[in-house]
């Protein structure tokens, strides 16, 4: 089989066909999320709590936002066959830049500064991966180290101040729904549109599926990877802005304490996206994020030991991916 023979099938947007099938991983993920919600509701109710109380719903949703934004970005790079381990430090730096710029300037300049920083980091990641041919794992680990040094050298703790007007993003809600969820929805919709409805998106799936074949069939794989990294960093920038509005200041450990690097990858994979690239999508990722948030909330309600939580999370992640692997094998 020559590589060129593969070309047509690579370029054909398979997702459009698959979307309607029940075997679409995203459907499975949302079903799983529904099961988790029902189980969580049952357990919490038996324990004497109220799962669907207003405060609890708000908490679950607002806990989705930061991880959701990062995971949506992470989906874009993972789909393209890359990976981003620098997201945690970019979040930290993003909150610091946002808070400091907003303290002296306006909210708009703060947002622009964060987005500019994100584009720069995403571009750097993309160029190191494609230009220097450094494996994405190492490349983004390297950028993470560089960002970390920059943060530790320049900041000795929380810095800056977010104006009250900007804090509405983090604290306001409509009924039980935090307004920040609309930020996540908008970013996710944009990412969904790009990956599923544009040429760029098809190129991303093609590059992630088989880079070699994609290149031979005329996809500019390097450019695609670079753009995917920029998209990822922009999503991370949005997460940093949300966290800045929530924290009211920038914090050097905003991204690292929560391990957004590994958590986001876990959420993406939990959402049915293949780590090797080429399969999955943003919709599944959101389901994965929701599962993690609901689990967290149930643990909170039951006052589960935080160390035990990690055990359960580890088991859930492995078990979920093992299930996908089984399903994938059967339908293949």
């Amino acid at each position: 089989m020559t590589p060129t023979a593969l070309a047509p099938s690579v370029l054909k947007p398979e997702p459009a066909r698959r979307r309607t099938k029940l075997t679409d991983p995203a459907v499975g993920v949302w079903l799983a999320a529904a099961v988790v919600i029902v189980l969580g509701w049952l357990i919490v109710t038996i324990d004497g709590g109220s799962f669907f109380a207003r405060a609890n719903l708000t908490t679950i949703l607002s806990n989705c936002v930061a991880l959701g934004l990062v995971a949506v970005g992470q989906s874009a790079v993972i789909l393209t066959g890359s990976l981003d381990l620098s997201v945690a430090y970019l979040i930290s730096l993003g909150t610091l830049v946002a808070a400091e710029t907003m303290q002296d300037g306006s909210v708009v300049t703060g947002i622009l500064a964060v987005l500019a920083l994100s584009i720069a980091v995403g571009l750097a990641n993309g160029l190191i991966v494609t230009g220097l041919k450094v494996n994405a794992f190492i490349a983004t680990l390297g950028t993470a180290f560089i960002l970390r040094g920059w943060i530790e050298d320049n900041y000795t703790g929380p810095a800056g101040q977010v104006p009250a007007s900007f804090r509405h993003l983090g604290y306001d809600r409509i009924g039980p729904i935090p307004v920040s969820i609309f930020l996540l929805a908008a970013v996710a919709a944009a990412a969904w549109f790009i990956t599923r409805r544009t040429r760029l998106g098809h190129h991303m799936y093609a590059t992630g599926g088989d880079e070699h074949a994609a290149r031979l069939s005329g996809v500019r794989t390097r450019r695609t990877v670079v753009i995917a990294h920029i998209i990822c960093s922009l999503c991370v920038g949005a997460a940093a802005l949300f966290l800045a509005s929530r924290l009211g200041a920038g914090a050097p450990w905003a991204g690292t304490e929560a391990r957004y690097d590994l958590e986001s990858i876990a959420a993406v994979v939990l959402g049915g996206t293949a780590l090797a690239g080429g399969r999955g999508g943003v919709a599944g990722t959101l389901g994965g994020v929701l599962i993690l948030a609901v689990l967290d909330s149930v643990f909170n309600q039951l006052s589960v030991d935080p160390f035990f939580k990690n055990v359960v999370r580890g088991v859930v992640i492995i078990a979920a991916v093992a299930l996908y692997a089984r399903r994938g094998r059967r339908s293949a």
Binding site: R54, A55, L247, A251, A254, A258, N300
Partner: peptide, 22 residues
């Protein structure tokens, strides 16, 4: 009732919000 934020500022903010409604 104890809620543990596991060192995450964002989670502690949610925790406090949750506790005030409890």
């Amino acid at each position: 009732t104890v809620l543990d934020a596991q060192g995450k500022d964002d989670k502690q903010i949610s925790d406090i919000e949750e506790l005030t409604g409890k």
